[in-house]
Computed example of a mutant assay.
Amino acid sequence: MTSNNNRVAIVTGGSRGIGRAVAERLVADGQHVVIAYAGNETAAKATVGAIENAGGHGVAVRADVADEAAVTALFDTAEQRFGGVDVVVNAAGIMILKPIVDLDLDEFDRMHRTNVRGTFVVAREAAGRLRPGGTLINFSTSVTRAKLPTYAAYAASKAAVEALGPILAKELRGRDITVNTVAPGPTATELFLKDKSDELIKTIAGQNPMGRLGRGEDIAEVVSLLAGAGRWINGQTLFVNGGAF
């Protein structure tokens, strides 16, 4: 495996939230990072600026993760800019919370397009282009185990992601490439905090044995392990939630 100073990572959803924390941590580990973002150019530029201010190398690429041509172009950019791809982190995702009876099928399709198709498209490209010693890290959620009302469609989309990982790990036998899935619990990001009252957030934090919500850095720490020294972890889903579920 090449040293971190020569390694190149693609982080989808890397402009905000957990994705940004992951991108910044991988840069701190010495990797060059290509951030894929869906539409918020301002946030993407801010993340690249933070990376460069920290002495790292990063570039932002607008890409719809569910679009095959866009994902191909994303990998092309990483190879042209930095020489190859060693780490792919599939952090892009959307969450729509409603009871099953109230969820519009257009909302269902939009969520699954990003969370399931998007993960699959990026994973397929990664399978063909990761260098030996590389790793693919997909993102699920601890909600797949919590079985909370209003989370059914979201949890179903992430359960599909969990199913993909161990199968792809076996299909890549002999390539020296690991495939794992990280499943965060409640984490203080814009995606999680949206439309939740302060009282509800306090309640959720208090239910955790650690007495708080997760932080982006908590999740990034695990990604850093999987993207670096954790080579004997393969085909697994790691629940990173402070013991919440």
Results as ranks from 00 to 15, higher is better:
residue 93 G to P: 06
residue 125 E to T: 11
residue 156 A to D: 10
residue 197 S to W: 13
residue 168 L to E: 05
residue 174 G to M: 11
residue 38 A to H: 14
residue 185 G to H: 10
residue 231 R to I: 10
residue 136 L to F: 14
residue 62 R to V: 03
residue 195 D to Y: 14
residue 151 Y to T: 14
residue 188 A to D: 15
residue 195 D to M: 09
residue 142 S to M: 03
residue 239 F to A: 02
residue 86 D to M: 07
residue 186 P to K: 07
residue 167 I to R: 10
residue 164 L to M: 15
residue 94 I to C: 06
residue 64 D to F: 02
residue 17 G to D: 09
residue 34 V to W: 11
residue 151 Y to K: 02
residue 98 K to E: 12
residue 87 V to P: 04
residue 107 E to G: 00
residue 218 D to W: 06
residue 89 V to C: 14
residue 29 D to V: 11
residue 82 F to I: 10
residue 10 I to N: 11
residue 200 L to A: 15
residue 222 V to N: 05
residue 151 Y to P: 00
residue 133 G to F: 02
residue 144 T to Y: 08
residue 214 G to V: 13
residue 163 A to W: 01
residue 24 E to V: 01
residue 227 A to Q: 04
residue 58 G to I: 09
residue 64 D to T: 08
residue 55 G to V: 10
residue 144 T to N: 08
residue 128 G to W: 02
residue 132 P to L: 01
residue 22 V to Y: 05
residue 171 E to A: 04
residue 157 S to K: 04
residue 18 I to H: 02
residue 27 V to E: 06
residue 26 L to F: 07
residue 210 M to L: 15
residue 64 D to C: 01
residue 213 L to D: 05
residue 104 D to I: 06
residue 136 L to M: 13
residue 119 T to E: 06
residue 51 I to F: 01
residue 192 F to A: 03
residue 154 Y to N: 01
residue 110 R to N: 12
residue 100 I to F: 15
residue 33 V to W: 00
residue 234 N to Q: 13
residue 209 P to Q: 10
residue 160 A to F: 02
residue 6 N to S: 15
residue 46 A to M: 12
residue 120 F to E: 04
residue 206 G to S: 12
residue 146 A to G: 01
residue 163 A to K: 02
residue 4 N to T: 15
residue 118 G to L: 02
residue 2 T to K: 15
residue 46 A to V: 00
residue 76 D to F: 09
residue 130 L to T: 00
residue 109 D to A: 13
residue 88 V to I: 05
residue 30 G to N: 12
residue 148 L to N: 12
residue 139 F to Y: 11
residue 137 I to L: 12
residue 62 R to W: 09
residue 59 V to M: 11
residue 192 F to Q: 04
residue 195 D to N: 15
residue 29 D to A: 13
residue 223 V to F: 13
residue 53 N to Q: 15
residue 204 I to K: 02
residue 204 I to P: 02
residue 71 V to L: 00
